[in-house]
């Protein structure tokens, strides 16, 4: 991925001013060649992968003529460079084409599944950041204490367990043994709830997958915040703040934390594509109707329009996430603005 750190060195703008608008426009323009590059690479990789939608189908009754006809209708019989230009041209017009598997426009397929992934990802994002900030701060504050050691052990444990294993373990405990949460799915089959009842049903179903995802992602964040915090609380201004008699809470949460959070803005930028990317493995374990498993299936089935369309969609989000991180960084940290 593109490193936003590198970009930061040349960030020259003032929030809200003309310079900032220019900066954003320039960055957006810079995204164009990047995207073209990405599209070529992504397309080339997909074209080089053996097999296509027809071979992946492996239909035992399909005649060679029929396969040829289908390849013609799907445009798979044209040379690769031609296919690239047709595809790229359609993308420019906002037309991602029809998914071969779903026989509907790619945008519609994305729209059907992506929001299911989004709500889990968003819940996970909020939970893991809140937990990570607090545990990170306390671990740093009480470095090498018993609390710090326990937290370190726990987060490493959570990080290193394979997600499908925790997922199944939780299903066994919470769903089968204690019957607290449903085994899988997003809603109770056959219920056509609306309003609150629906939301309650979904929350109940998303508890377990969100728990697993949070367990997985909190670990690294905690370490990140702990490291950031450790660095900051050794700074002179923190000593100054203490010396002038501020309460410890104010020192930690107002003066130290805000500075320790700065590098996290970069991380937040990377979270943008993750919000929409789906979680392939967990969606499978919990039968969550998210985009991740649809994406995976499209790769296995060589459903080029969807596979390429969604990859480009994620690339755009990644680039925007980078831009967002840089802009936010500038707003939050006056030191890197050009005077």
């Amino acid at each position: 991925m593109l490193s936003s750190q590198v970009e930061l060195g040349i960030s020259i703008y003032k929030p809200g001013g003309i310079l900032m608008r220019q900066y954003i426009i320039r960055r957006l323009l810079q995204m164009i060649p990047t995207l073209i590059g990405i599209s070529i690479i992504v397309f080339a990789i997909s074209a080089m992968v053996p097999g296509d939608f027809i071979t992946a189908k492996n239909n035992p009754n399909m005649t060679a003529e029929k396969a040829e006809q289908l390849r013609h209708i799907y445009g798979l019989d044209k040379p690769e460079y031609e296919r690239y230009f047709i595809w790229a041209g359609n993308m420019l017009k906002g037309n991602m084409g029809d998914s071969l598997q779903h026989k509907q426009p790619v945008t519609e397929v994305i729209n059907t599944y992506v929001w299911n992934s989004f709500i889990i990802a968003l819940a996970t994002l909020i939970l893991s950041w809140v937990i990570a900030v607090f545990t990170g701060v306390f671990s740093a504050k009480f470095q090498y204490s018993f609390f710090d050691r326990i937290v370190t052990l726990t987060v490493f444990l959570c990080m290193s367990l394979p997600s499908f294993f925790i997922g199944l373990l939780l299903i066994k405990l919470f769903a089968l043994d204690w019957k607290l949460f449903p085994v899988s799915g997003m809603t109770t089959a056959g219920h056509n709830d609306a309003g609150w009842a629906y939301i309650k049903d979904v929350v109940k179903h998303m508890f377990l997958p969100t728990l697993v995802l949070t367990m997985l992602s909190t670990g690294s964040l905690t370490r990140y915040f702990r490291a950031g915090m450790l660095e900051v609380i050794r700074q002179d201004y923190i000593r100054t703040a203490r010396a002038k008699g501020l309460k410890e809470v104010t020192v930690i949460f107002k003066h130290a934390l805000r500075n320790a959070l700065l590098p996290a803005i970069t991380l937040l930028g990377f979270e943008l594509p993750a919000l929409f990317g789906g979680a392939m493995i967990l969606e499978k374990v919990f039968v969550w109707p998210g985009i991740g498993q649809v994406y995976l299936e499209s790769i296995n089935m060589r459903d080029y329009p969807f596979m390429l369309g969604f990859t480009i969609f994620l690339s755009i989000l990644t680039l925007l996430g980078n831009l967002l991180a840089d802009v936010l960084y500038g707003i939050a940290d006056p030191r890197i603005r050009l005077k």
């Binding site: 769903a175 019957k179 449903p182 085994v183 899988s184 799915g185 089959a189 039968v287």
Partner: peptide, 19 residues
């Protein structure tokens, strides 16, 4: 109702009476 299941959960779902 045709309900989506996977290999990992279809036994549990029958057992819990959900399918």
């Amino acid at each position: 109702i045709y309900r989506t299941t996977t290999d990992g959960t279809n036994l549990s779902l029958i057992q819990s009476g959900e399918t």
